[in-house]
Amino acid sequence: MKSQKKKNRKWLKGTGIVLLVLLIVGGVYTYSVFKSFKNAVETMNQPIDRKQSEKRVKPVALPKKDPFSVLMLGVDERPGDQGRSDTIIVLTVNPNNKSVKMLSIPRDTRTEIIGKGTVDKINHAYAFGGVPMSMNTVENFLDIPIDYYIQVNMDGFKDLVNAVGGVTVQNNLDFTQDGVHFPVGTVNLNGEKALSFSRMRHEDPRGDFGREARQREILQAVIKEGTSLSSLTNYSTIFSALGKNIKTNLTFDQIMDIQKNYRDAGNNIQQVEIAEKGTMIDKIYYGLVSAEEKQRVQNELKTQLNL
């Protein structure tokens, strides 16, 4: 029994990169759990009509352990409105150096919107053209191929937090959001509070950067709870929350390839930040990234992808 628990824990930790992409995971060891997980992934799978990136000489071969990238979009979906991607995170995964680089792009970043022919805030790409336009715009901005996407319904994100029994984070800023007070120190969050915690930015002197740091902390806390052995007993609720609130062009077989070939990379997650200067243009706030800063980030991610 003890040996089996260690085996389960090893599988769960090894699936760290899948967790980072899908946010949570269950131990796929019994047939019923395996089937539930597969059904959830099939529900989440949403292929998109998008040509292979011109920045790729050949398609990514996950069985051959090619480095790859994922665009994670946190979207506030509203009735009658496609919404905007207020959370934009790019993951570059390299199994050779056993690492994942996680870049948060501030939503107000000013850049060319590919396919629209305008220069605007980067999060408007989703409002104009959904996932394909977001992928193309981020790809152009970073000058790297964007291979896969994960879209998370942020309003439904609270279901994911509740499914793993809530999360615990370390808060370094005393603030109040949506009528909830978040003191400095250890804070226990249910789904509703986690959503408020991750959305606040106006009271934070770091603005979007502080907001992004809290979002990453929530994601990592969900991963921690989702990989605990106690979560194995709650797999049906966890997988149900995944299926309802996440869309991705990753297939079940691709996720299994990632679990098999990239597991060590998930144990080394490195944060990448991009510096920008807040500026008003025509009475609209934008974040401007200098050419030198953009080049620095592009070079770091290209190296990570072996480009």
Rank of each mutant, 00 (worst) to 15 (best):
Gly185Asp: 09
Gly207Ala: 06
Val57Thr: 13
Ile17Gln: 01
Arg50Ser: 04
Leu173Asp: 00
Leu103Glu: 00
Tyr126Pro: 05
Pro67Thr: 10
Leu22Glu: 11
Leu305Gly: 04
Gln215Arg: 09
Gly210Ile: 10
Ser236Arg: 13
Phe37Met: 12
Val41Phe: 10
Thr248Gly: 08
Val272Tyr: 01
Val138Lys: 01
Gly287Val: 00
Lys302Pro: 03
Val138Pro: 03
Ile150Asp: 05
Leu219Cys: 08
Glu192Pro: 03
Ala213Phe: 05
Val57Lys: 15
Thr233Arg: 13
Pro63Gly: 00
Ile122Leu: 09
Lys247Ile: 04
Gln4Asp: 13
Glu225Ser: 12
Arg107Asn: 04
Gln254Trp: 06
Thr137Gly: 02
Gly156Asp: 10
Trp11Arg: 14
Lys6Cys: 05
Tyr148Leu: 02
Lys247Val: 02
Asp264Glu: 14
Ser85Ala: 15
Gly226Asp: 08
Met72Phe: 11
Leu73Asn: 01
Arg110Glu: 01
Pro59Gly: 11
Leu305Asp: 09
Gly14Trp: 03
Gly117His: 07
Val131Phe: 07
Lys260Tyr: 10
Asp108Ala: 01
Tyr285Glu: 04
Met1Ala: 14
Val21His: 04
Lys158Gln: 15
Asn153Met: 09
Pro106His: 12
Phe197Met: 07
Leu12Phe: 02
Gly165Ile: 07
Lys10Asn: 13
Val119Asp: 07
Ala291Asp: 15
Gln170Met: 01
Pro63Phe: 04
Lys6Met: 12
Ala194Arg: 00
Asn245Cys: 07
Thr30Asn: 13
Gln298Phe: 02
Arg263Asp: 09
Asp204Ala: 08
Ser240Phe: 07
Thr233Tyr: 10
Glu273Asn: 12
Ser290Met: 08
Glu112Pro: 00
Ser231Phe: 05
Thr248Val: 08
Val33Cys: 02
Asn96Ser: 12
Lys13Thr: 14
Met1Asp: 11
Glu225Gln: 15
Asn172Arg: 11
Asn97Met: 04
Gln82Trp: 08
Asp253Glu: 15
Gly165Cys: 03
Phe209Asn: 01
Gly278Trp: 01
Leu73Lys: 00
Asp86Gly: 00
Asp120Tyr: 06
Gln215Ile: 06
Gly191Cys: 09
Gly80Val: 06
Phe175Leu: 07
Ser231Glu: 14
Val18Lys: 11
Lys38Asp: 05
Asp208His: 04
Gln215Val: 03
Phe175Arg: 06
His124Gly: 01
Tyr126His: 15
Asn171His: 12
Asn267Gln: 15
Ala291Gln: 14
Phe157Trp: 05
Asp264Gly: 03
Thr43Lys: 15
Ala221Phe: 04
Gly129Gln: 01
Thr233Lys: 13
Lys35Ala: 12
Val90Cys: 01
Lys244His: 11
Leu173Val: 10
Met102Ile: 10
Ser53Val: 03
Arg50Asp: 03
Ser230Arg: 10
Met154Val: 13
Val28Cys: 10
Ser198Cys: 08
Gln82Val: 14
Ala221Pro: 02
Glu212Gly: 12
Val28Glu: 14
Asp108Gln: 03
Gln220Phe: 13
Tyr235Asn: 06
Lys193Ile: 05
Phe37Thr: 02
Asn306Asp: 14
Asn172Thr: 13
Tyr29Trp: 11
Thr92Met: 04
Leu20Asp: 05
Asp76Cys: 10
Arg84Gly: 00
Ile113Met: 06
Asp76Thr: 08
Leu301Gly: 06
Lys294Pro: 03
Asp208Gln: 11
